[in-house]
Design a protein around this nucleic acid. Sequence first.
DNA 1: GCTTACCTGTCG
DNA 2: CGACAGGTAAGC
Length: 278
Amino acid sequence: MPELPEVETIRRGLEPLIANKVFTRPVLLFPGSIRHPEPDRFCEQLEGRRIIAVKRHGKYLLLELDCGLLVVHLRMTGRLVYLEKGEPPSGHLRVVLPFQDGSFLYFSDMRKFGGLWLLESKDDLSPAGMHRLGPDIYEQVTEEKFLELLQKRPRARLKPLLLDQLFVAGLGNIYVDESLHRCRLHPCREAGSLSREEGKALFRAIRAVLEEGIRCGGTSSRDYRDARGEKGTFQERLAVYGRKGCLCRCGAAIERTVVAGRGTYYCPRCQEEKEGPP
DNA sequence: GCTTACCTGTCG
DNA sequence: CGACAGGTAAGC
């Protein structure tokens, strides 16, 4: 579910709400959501830890603690919602993280793909598999760097390449399709076939789409909610994603195909294919 | 690269 | 009932 703009929206909402709060002992309704260390040790070690800052790398949310680091990945249907008091969120609650002041952070996750990792230090992200992540596409990649990265993978098709979190971190299915449509590039174009101008246009399209996504508080196709449980509004501005059969601004009908095993929406007229297999 | 698997739900 | 869903890891 959540891609970079959704995780960034949660980060921005969460930081002022939970900075400086101290965890008490977690309650695990589904221990499988705890990925590291063992659930018992996780609970033991989190108790008494204070939150210093809330950061993000790609789609990972990082809660920096006075000692160690709590990492959260929401995968498809995860939610991280803060509540002062009262009823916990109703559906698919997996982990309750209570604070000393009586407020709570709730992790819900219908499909159980998401997870939490408690790491000893930000210098060893390997237990969460984060050590291989590429640079954050929003915070750590300049236009020049992006062009260099593209040149290193000349034979890769754009869509699978941009979805590859080891290449750049943060993009997912929605924002890749929207970015490619905005700069009128076909998802199957090979990176090495782009002119310098096309590469720049792609980078600018990605930035613009991510910025707009963040400004709208993310895309709530279905499950996504921010740190206060509210929906985003970028779904109202999608040009191609989920819009098979709708008309593009050029008048052609949006098509759906499968690329890299993912549903892929594009305009067959604007995003004419120039090279690579269909 | 691709396919499958992980889960649970919605939609046609 | 099958197809599909914002993500990723593992296995060809």
